[in-house]
Amino acid sequence: MPQMAPISWLVLFLVFSVTLILFNVLNYYCVLPKNLSTSEKKNSFLTSPLNWKW
């Protein structure tokens, strides 16, 4: 069975790299965080204490 030529490895590497970068960029910019005011942030910390089960 013949080996793959080096240029094929280079093309595969570039295709997978571009796909990975594109996937990560799209996932990063598709999610919009909720903007909470400072009073809501303070209240959320005060009303939800950390309850450790152990």
Rank of each mutant, 00 (worst) to 15 (best):
M1D: 05
M1E: 06
M1P: 02
P2M: 03
P2E: 04
Q3W: 05
Q3I: 01
Q3K: 13
M4R: 13
A5I: 02
A5G: 06
P6A: 01
I7T: 10
I7G: 09
S8Y: 09
S8T: 04
S8W: 08
W9K: 11
L10G: 09
V11K: 13
V11N: 04
L12D: 04
L12A: 11
F13R: 06
F13N: 05
L14E: 07
V15C: 10
F16Y: 08
S17F: 13
S17A: 15
S17D: 08
V18W: 13
V18K: 12
V18Y: 15
V18I: 14
T19C: 09
L20N: 13
L22W: 11
L22N: 08
F23N: 12
F23E: 07
F23V: 04
F23S: 13
N24A: 12
N24D: 06
V25P: 00
V25A: 06
V25Y: 04
V25L: 09
L26I: 12
N27R: 11
Y28V: 02
Y29K: 07
C30T: 15
C30R: 15
C30L: 14
C30A: 15
C30W: 15
V31G: 02
V31C: 03
L32I: 13
P33N: 01
P33W: 01
N35D: 10
N35W: 07
N35I: 06
L36Y: 10
L36I: 01
S37D: 06
S37M: 00
T38I: 09
S39E: 03
S39T: 03
E40K: 09
E40Q: 14
E40M: 05
E40W: 03
K41F: 06
K41E: 03
K42C: 00
N43P: 01
N43G: 08
N43M: 09
S44L: 15
F45C: 00
T47W: 09
T47K: 13
L50Y: 09
L50W: 07
L50V: 07
N51K: 07
K53Y: 14
W54I: 05
W54Y: 14
